[in-house]
Write a protein that binds this DNA or RNA. Structure first.
Length: 511
RNA sequence: GCUCGAUUCGUCUAACGGUUAGGACGGCAGAUUCUCAUUCUGCAAAUAGGGGUUCGAUUCCCCUAUCGAGUACCA
């Protein structure tokens, strides 16, 4: 196998629906591997199943990769030396190769109807067996192995439906190498004669299209999900049958992403059931069903990618936050795990919080401003939004958390938390707050420093309880027992508003 | 059922024959603060089981168990 070739990998999804996070991770690992080795990342659309084609899925895949920052070098949008990159547009390529295998005796025509195949399956099942289209049955069925060449030609000319099947060796050990799992050996006796080409729609199946295109596109490394491992022997045998073994790509099968709780791999339905997104972007099915996306849920793409990268791979140290450039520098297939990785939505949120607080106040302010506008805040400038974002960013995991966290800066409380009121709006407190109002009214420049000094001096001079006073004030200004330091709140509200809110609280809660 | 793969705290993982088995998420407790959150400190928490190999196994081999995938004219 040639190892000196320029590294070329491909992400080859089927447009049968939105890409889910497992698919994004596969794309990411391919991308990181390509960039790490200075190679090419190719996006190839494998739309050879005309029945499962879903409109919009292809565009969704492209947009998802863009949002994630996974840049395609060759693909349906960017073109490239091996265009087209959509298999349905490469139709005419595949038959030639299928016929080449019939010619060489590695494949054959089969004329079975789907009804008769289903019948055979049902029959086997009734006997408690699994039907396998293999060497024990192929000679008995209507195939070119039994029919004369003339008969085969006649049937084809007559318009009978046919397929081309791979002629699996009866009993042969296939030794394979996986970059993640090591050596794997399978006896071909346990394999069946897979369909390579179907005349019904003049399209190849995955197995043929995949091998032919990987060869033609000079792919050097195939990095794909573990669900493909069982068909690896078939793929090895196909390369051998074509005589391409010496340029055959190296394979790496990635462990699967498992659902957070319960059994099995993460599936597209789990998100809505378990309350987290499984898709990078929101997806609306042709039937109008909407599934949530990480983007719409408020995740930063860098956080999403960081989280995904560490689900099944890690560089060894104790660092957990990595930029795309760092991931590229560090990535290697040797450090990809072998066991399935259970996805933990809580940790995903934590990653987002890390990225949120790492952003500058200015950046967050710019993101916050439109959110405030959406909630009807008209009198906020970028300067104020930046200040608020800086003050509150340690408390938010998502940008969408900010409104709940900051709304009281813009609207005076409509109601006051009863529990807090019971605890702090009692006894002398209201009267003290009325006094404090006068103290604050006397403060000139309403800065944190000034209001704090004035308040503390007054509390001290009168021997008051700091906790009682500050919490009463908090209730009056915020309406609840939460939020940043009270002097920060005062400064942000400004003198006028602060005093007005105290009056308002005295009025509503009683003096 | 058969084939292949996998198995370290609840979860993601580190330790590629010698560590008190480390970190992170989550959980719990405490400290700090005018509240909440943050932050800080601490605690609980794992090598699936059984055989080997070895002076020594999380690490290598075998068996069992469990989990996962595949078993389509789907990818």
């Amino acid at each position: 196998m040639a190892t000196e070739r320029r590294v070329r990998v491909r992400f080859a999804p089927s447009p049968t629906g939105p890409l889910h996070m497992g698919g994004v991770r596969t794309a990411l690992y391919n991308y990181l591997f390509a960039r790490h080795h200075g190679g090419d990342f190719i996006l190839r659309i494998e739309d050879t199943d005309s029945h499962r084609f879903v409109p919009g899925a292809e565009q969704y895949i492209i947009e998802s990769l863009k949002w994630c920052g996974i840049n395609v070098d060759e693909g349906i949008e960017q073109g490239g030396p091996h265009a087209p990159y959509r298999q349905s547009e490469r139709k005419e390529i595949y038959l030639k190769y299928a016929l080449q295998l019939v010619e060489s005796g590695d494949a054959y025509y089969a004329f079975d109807s789907s009804e008769s195949l289903n019948a055979m399956r049902a029959e086997a099942e009734a006997r408690g067996e699994t039907f396998s289209y293999n060497h024990t049955v192929r000679e008995k069925l209507e195939t070119s192995l039994r029919l004369s060449p003339q008969e085969v030609q006649e049937r084809i000319a007559r318009g009978d439906q046919w397929v081309i099947r791979f002629k699996m060796p009866e009993n042969k050990l296939v030794h394979m190498k996986d970059l993640i799992r090591g050596e794997v050996t399978v006896n071909s006796a346990t394999l069946d004669d897979k369909v390579l080409y179907k005349s019904a729609d003049n399209l190849p199946t995955y197995h043929l299209a995949n091998i032919v295109d990987d060869h033609l596109m000079e792919i050097t490394h195939v990095i794909r999900g573990e669900e493909w491992l069982p068909s690896l022997p078939l793929h090895y045998l196909l390369y051998r049958a074509f005589g391409w073994s010496d340029t055959q790509p190296l394979f790496a099968h990635l462990p699967l992403l498992l659902k957070p709780t319960g059994k099995g791999k993460l599936s597209k339905r789990d998100g809505d059931k378990m309350g987290f997104p499984v898709f990078p972007l929101q997806w609306t099915s042709p039937e109008g069903e909407v599934s949530r996306g990480y983007r719409e849920d408020g995740y930063f793409p860098e956080a999403f990618i960081n989280m995904l990268a560490l689900l099944g791979w890690n560089p060894g140290g104790e660092q957990e936050i990595f930029s795309m450039d760092e991931l590229i520098k560090l990535f290697s297939l040797e450090r990809v795990g072998k066991a399935g990785a259970r996805f933990d939505p809580e940790k995903a949120k934590w990653f987002n919080a890390q990225y949120l607080r790492a952003k500058s106040d200015e950046e967050l302010g710019a993101l916050l401003l439109p959110i405030l506008r959406e909630h009807g805040v008209r009198n906020c400038c970028i300067f104020l939004a930046t200040k608020i974002a800086g003050l509150m960013k340690e408390r938010a995991k998502f940008m969408s958390d900010f409104w709940d966290l900051t709304s009281y800066f813009f609207f005076a409380p409509e109601h006051y938390d009863e529990k807090v009121a019971a605890k702090y709006w009692k006894g002398e407190n209201p009267a003290r707050i009325a006094e404090l109002k006068e103290v604050l009214a006397a403060v000139g420049d309403f800065t944190v420093e000034n209001t704090e000094k004035a308040t503390r001096d007054w509390i001290e001079a009168n021997g008051l309880n700091m906790g009682q006073i500050m919490n009463s004030l908090r209730l009056a200004l915020v309406g609840a027992g939460k939020g940043p330091g009270m002097f920060d709140v005062c400064e942000l509200l400004g003198k006028e508003e602060t005093l007005a809110r105290i009056d308002r609280a005295l009025e509503r809660l009683g003096k």
